[in-house]
Design a protein around this nucleic acid. Structure first.
Lengths: 222, 222
DNA sequence: GTCTATAACGCGATAGAC
DNA sequence: GTCTATCGCGTTATAGAC
């Protein structure tokens, strides 16, 4: 199929060029005209492949997510402590995303739009979201943590939400090398682990059950 | 000062017109040309008063915040229970913001941009932020809740952050009348109140202290 | 110095020919 | 699938009125 191959090549060329220019000059200062020119195609052609400038960002997300999944899995290999596994996964994300922080913020702002397909909560993002939640499930299942079974089942999704919170903080983080985001992870993960462990104490069952129930009810589609 | 009065009148006319058109047609579909025409001024004039289209949103925020402060204070008047006071304040915000939910999301998306002066964390927003935190302080101080003193001092700011979380949820809330957001408030407030009360138990001191310390450290400006 | 109006620029996006 | 031409809108430059 030389036909398909050609078009895939063009598509890939456009997205590669876009990411390079975004990295060099920032999102706003990179025009569609410049992307098209850099890729050696016309503006109309670029729009044939990508319905909007925003759409070009999706490739960027996918790339970061893909590398995070691989790298994080490699790093948590031998570890069995829950807190250590979780911390490793989150710090790994910060490591991978760091080079893109400058212009990455622009991207995640677009993602905050609930209408946008780029939103992490959108249907279009469900594949990536499921993959990330799957990684969190590995964090839990590969650890020796003891948990209230009901909490255990819900925990991967909760941890993904927590990760979204870390990303939100990271976007607003102006410290050098985003060291504040690192501090957030280093210190909030042990707290979370302690709270999760407390969920087994009898006196906390009602509280932890209500938290789990609430989140389940909030997630219902109706 | 007829001079100042005139200009204030023009400014107010522009922002009122903008808010009306935003409500009627949405943010994106309302052009600066339409706003200027609707207010009976030139486009250049609109830009004399507001440096950008985004800037017009600030008036919108201020209006919602102003009404929320007044209305919430009136509603919590007789109440002394901490959870009830907090719940009232948050539900009051949902009541006031409801008519604007459709296009309000667009606004809060802009606010998610850390670079934007509209961000609730920005210097430009500090006055509004302080006022909101002040309201939360009244929620705490006017209640009979017993708290670890260190937590008590930090709590208003934490509650403001919690409110920002509720707003974030609200923006993504597609349920009728945003009833999911209401459920979130109805059920998470009692949980929060229980957790806050637990902070007085000896065995939780370390955890609650670490939470307070962490937030303080994260908020440091360096 | 305070305020207003017109024209034009730049960029995201689209229409329509080939 | 690809191009050229063009539109619509946020924004700015500029020139002047009170």
């Amino acid at each position: 199929m030389p036909h398909v191959a050609k078009s895939e090549e063009t598509r890939s060329l456009i997205v590669t060029t876009a990411m390079r220019l975004f990295t060099e000059n920032g999102y706003d200062r990179t025009t569609m005209r410049a992307i098209a020119a850099g890729a050696g195609v016309s503006v109309g052609n670029a729009y044939y492949y990508f319905s909007s400038k925003e759409q070009l960002i999706q490739g960027f997300y996918d790339e970061i997510a893909r590398r995070h999944l691989g790298e994080a899995r490699a790093r948590i290999g031998g570890e069995t402590a829950f807190a250590a596994r979780l911390k490793t996964v989150l710090l790994c994300w910060l490591d991978i995303a760091e080079p893109y922080h400058r212009f990455g913020t622009q991207f995640f702002v677009n993602a905050a739009d609930p209408e946008s397909p780029l939103s992490p909560f959108s249907d279009d993002s469900s594949a990536a979201r499921e993959a990330s939640i799957g990684l969190m499930r590995e964090v839990v299942d590969g650890s020796d943590v003891k948990l209230d079974p009901e909490l255990r089942e819900q925990l991967p999704e909760l941890l993904w939400l927590y990760q979204m919170g870390v990303v939100l903080f990271w976007v607003h983080d102006r410290s050098r090398g985003q060291k504040r985001s690192r501090m957030l992870v280093e210190r909030s993960v042990p707290l979370l682990a302690r709270l999760a462990a407390l969920s087994r104490l009898r006196m906390f069952r009602p509280v932890s059950r209500e938290i789990v129930d609430l989140i389940q009810d909030l997630a219902k589609k109706d």
